[in-house]
Design a protein around this nucleic acid. Structure first.
Length: 564
DNA sequence: GCTGGCTGCCC
DNA sequence: ATTCTGC
DNA sequence: GCAGAATGGGCAGCCAGC
């Protein structure tokens, strides 16, 4: 199949905002796709062709350099095109089609096929000295064979970002429609075996029976169930029927541990195999398990002197070299909270109450692997206390779980909720901005903020914030920024310090990058403070103070922050 | 051989 | 990770 | 309520370039 055939479909999908219509287009296209090409076509439709398997190590910046060279554009020209056309792929396509010489030769070149893409991908996974240089050349050469539309989607595929309003969930819907199988069955199959193309092939050749055959199996990673946020305990109690299980929400990484006899593997939330990183956990599980085959799930954190370490300290454990040395520097504990498979049985359709009862019996807790701290409660006050206890124990907050819920992998559903700590808000000075991507490409959508230094005579930067504003407020802020621009460099502008925004964060981090020496974790803009002048903005003293006391209970606001 | 830029992956 | 928006 | 888009800090590891 020609790449251009898929590009046409991409264009059609991008041109409608109706999800039903997008699904219909995909369904129709899959219907006329030869069965043996289905897995590959699906990988391309979901935009994951280059982002599954070996990493390319080619990102936005390298692609930008290739783009400049291939289309022969200056930094400014390319940035102008990017702002006008949304993204790098769109910009390149636009600049490409302006070049008449190329168009004249187009018909003489053999049109690239899907297999050409696969072959290129294989070559692009090389590593080693001069590899980036060679990859750049191959990409440039391939771009030269493409039409403008193909350029757009090829570049987007390289970046793993199609931006056409279509991702895996809608493709699954299309597979269900095409094969006349309930969407739920397709979805459950994918979660247990996350290769959409393979699932599609099975659905098409074997239908529902084929899909039903796909079960959770130890050593094959499963997409974990995700939680939504809540501001109130009442919501959880109401939604979950008056009683909830509450567990500490540890600040580490989500881990699923698979055991099949002597073989043990662990995987991250996005299914990266992390077995080599945690020899200590593997050894511990061998000692304490009472099962032959199982899949259990929990959160690993760093532990020093009986205390949970900050996330940054723990992250040193995720490495390839010097694992033994780091393992003794930063010991870890795994706090288990769920079980998906045990003995010979997929237990995801059991209730959480039932699964937990199984989990409790599966192993003998050790120092390194034990159950997450947990209560079952029907009382807001009790949950509040439990939350505060969690914060004191260096956790991010608590999880609230429906005891009656089954385990629905991969979905961010209503089966569990998270209730997290946030800090007091900061009033910060806007000192810079950056143009965005996609639908925000012609707008400032990332904002640099600073606080006063201790003397309140200079400001010091604390990082970039981009989320939180509604489109309307974003427009307002853009209008206020324009007349204040003092300098422009590529996509970035420096802004005369005059505007103040209220910014919320979950945590203050010590930062090697920012002038202030601190940065904000999960920062978001709460509102524009038109009522404040920069003299009213906070200083670094407050940030420092929040940093040193952030684990104590005085400095966090609960749920929605209160308006003044 | 070292440093800084870049990527990918955790949150 | 968080947040907003449109279906 | 779901799905999609647009965006954050920081760590390790690798490669380019000096």
């Amino acid at each position: 199949m020609r790449f251009s055939a898929i590009c046409e479909i991409f264009e059609q999908i991008a041109s409608t905002s109706s999800t039903n219509q997008k699904v219909a287009i995909v369904t129709q296209f899959l219907r006329q796709t030869p069965i043996d090409e289905i897995p590959l076509v699906i990988q391309i439709l979901t935009g994951t062709l280059f982002s599954q398997g070996a990493p390319l190590n080619i990102g936005y910046i390298i692609l930008w350099k290739i783009a400049r060279q291939v289309v022969g554009a200056s930094e400014n020209q390319l940035e102008q095109a990017r702002q006008a056309h949304g993204d790098l792929g769109g910009a390149m396509a636009a600049l490409f089609s302006q070049r008449k010489t190329r168009q004249a030769t187009l018909f003489m070149v053999d049109p690239p096929s899907l297999n050409d893409l696969v072959n290129l991908y294989q070559r692009l996974t090389i590593t080693g000295s001069r590899s980036t240089t060679r990859k750049k050349q191959w990409i440039a050469a391939f771009l030269d064979r493409l039409t403008a539309v193909e350029v757009k989607y090829f570049v987007r595929l390289l970046l793993g970002w199609l931006n056409i309003g279509l991702q895996t969930p809608l493709v699954l819907r299309a597979i269900a429609e095409l094969t006349n199988v309930p969407e739920e069955s397709v979805r459950r199959a994918v979660l247990k075996h996350p290769e959409v193309g393979e699932i599609a092939r099975i659905a098409m050749t074997e239908g529902l029976n084929g899909l039903a055959r796909i079960q959770i199996r130890p050593l094959i990673p499963v997409l974990p169930m995700l939680a939504m946020q809540t501001d109130t305990f009442e919501e959880a109690l109401r939604d979950f029927g008056g009683t909830v299980a509450a567990e500490y929400k540890y600040d580490g990484i989500r881990l699923q541990l698979h055991q099949d006899g002597d073989r043990i593997e662990v995987f991250s939330r996005r299914l990266t195999q992390l077995t080599n990183q945690f020899p200590d956990l593997i050894a511990s599980w061998k000692d304490i398990t009472r099962e032959k085959r199982c899949v259990v799930e929990g959160e690993v954190v760093g532990m020093l002197g009986g205390k949970i370490t900050p996330f940054q300290v723990f992250m040193r454990r995720i490495r390839t070299y010097e694992i033994e040395a780091t393992a003794s520097d930063v010991p870890v504990s795994l706090f288990l909270f769920d079980v998906l498979f045990v003995g010979d049985e997929d237990v995801t359709r059991l209730t959480y109450r039932e699964r937990y009862a199984i989990l409790e019996r599966m192993f003998k807790p050790s120092e390194h692997i034990r159950l997450a701290t947990r209560i079952v409660s029907n009382d807001v006050k009790e949950l509040q206390n439990f939350f505060e206890q969690a914060i004191t124990a260096e956790c991010e907050g608590i999880m609230l779980k429906d005891l009656k819920a089954d385990y629905m992998p991969g979905t961010r559903g209503t089966r569990m909720l998270k209730y997290k700590k946030t800090l007091e808000t900061l009033d910060l000075i806007l000192v810079g901005a950056e143009y965005g991507e996609g639908r925000k490409s012609a707008l400032f959508s990332r904002f640099f903020f600073a606080a006063w230094d201790e003397t309140r005579t200079k400001f010091t930067t604390l990082g970039k914030v981009s989320t939180g504003l509604t489109d309307d407020d974003n427009q307002v802020l853009n209008d206020q920024i324009r007349p204040l621009i003092v300098q422009e460099e590529g996509r970035r502008v420096t802004v005369a310090p005059q505007l103040v925004c209220e910014v919320l964060a979950d945590e203050i981090l010590e930062s090697p990058r920012f002038e202030a020496g601190y940065a904000l974790r999960f920062a978001r803009i709460v509102r524009i403070r038109e009522d404040l002048s920069i003299d009213d903005a906070d200083d670094i003293g407050k940030v420092k103070n929040l940093f040193t006391t952030q684990r104590s209970r005085k400095n966090y606001a609960q749920g929605k922050h209160e308006q003044e």
